[in-house]
């Protein structure tokens, strides 16, 4: 088994893309995230692991302010993207989300054509001057989503008609079409079969060359396969954060070790 084989051991220090400082999240009375500090590097895959309900998805959604849509959710602390506080009053979440793209747990293509799915983001952000421009953006995005060859002949067919794995890669293509700097993925493979999962994981590794990727996953094997950095969350706190190799082979905190060896979770 090479499940625990680590993709990239030669990790060199890269510049920080996102810095979270003392982040607390409350859902009404529930304290979901407790004083989390973390620095996410550029052009790196960072995995968030931890048992169900540990707050890793909540924290991920803080990074592009998707929690804003939930009325009772209250975020305090600072999250800096390129040294700018994304929770600053002057920040419009719409602009932020164009920079910080997101891929969701369940593939959620719009019930429109494949072309329109990818073109939607560039259209609303005015990235294309004309039709030819847009065609080019769509093709580039679909290529980066590693799905171009499969769909190039049926761009006018509905995106919902694709298989689960194709849908998820379409969603990734849709997310990269707006030229984001950070790509957030919330358990992107949990609804996929093993083959589709392998394809998406391969894609994530390619995406690392351009974007800073943050991935929430339930599968420790997946975290080990795709990420360079791993953060372990437990009961709303960030227990341990470090190089993936180090987290999986030589964790500092006993809770991390318990989780990895399957004693908590």
């Amino acid at each position: 088994m090479n499940d625990m084989q680590f993709t990239d051991r030669a990790v060199d220090q890269k510049e920080t893309k996102i810095a979270a400082q003392g982040v607390n999240v409350h859902y009404g009375d529930a304290h979901a995230i407790k004083d989390v500090n973390v620095e996410i590097e550029d052009k790196t895959v960072t995995a968030f692991i931890g048992p169900s309900g540990c707050g890793k998805s909540t924290f991920l959604r803080c990074l592009n302010r998707m929690n804003d849509t939930i009325d009772i959710c209250n975020v305090t602390g600072n999250i800096l993207l390129d040294n700018e506080d994304i929770y600053d009053k002057r920040v419009d979440p719409v602009q932020l989300r164009a920079k910080v793209g997101m891929v969701f747990q369940k593939p959620n293509p719009f019930p429109k054509t494949i072309y329109d799915n990818v073109a939607y983001g560039p259209r609303i952000h005015g990235l294309a001057k004309n039709k030819a421009d847009l065609d080019e953006i769509v093709e580039k995005a679909l290529r980066r989503g590693a799905i171009w060859d499969e769909v190039k002949d049926r761009l006018d067919k509905p995106g919902t008609g694709l298989s689960g794995g194709q849908q998820q890669r379409l969603c990734i293509a849709r997310a990269v079409a707006t030229e984001p700097e950070v790509l957030l993925m919330d358990e992107p493979c949990s609804a996929l079969d093993p083959i589709a999962t392998a394809q998406v994981e391969e894609l994530i590794d390619e995406l690392r060359t351009r974007y800073s990727v943050v991935i929430v996953t339930h599968s420790m094997q997946q975290a080990a396969r795709v990420s360079q950095k791993t953060a372990f969350f437990h009961l709303g706190t960030l227990v341990e954060f470090g190089h993936t190799g180090q987290i999986f082979t030589n964790p500092e905190d006993p809770r991390t070790e318990s989780y990895i060896t399957g004693r908590i979770g």
Binding site: N64, M66, R97, M102, G121, I124, A175
Partner: peptide
């Protein structure tokens, strides 16, 4: 209309109103 459609629209940077008028309302 499934919330995932709203999430998808907001996720690519649509404003709330764009998400509603471009995606939720047609559905």
């Amino acid at each position: 209309v499934p919330p995932s459609i709203r999430d998808a629209a907001l996720g690519v940077g649509a404003s709330k109103m764009q998400a509603v008028f471009h995606h939720v309302l047609p559905l």
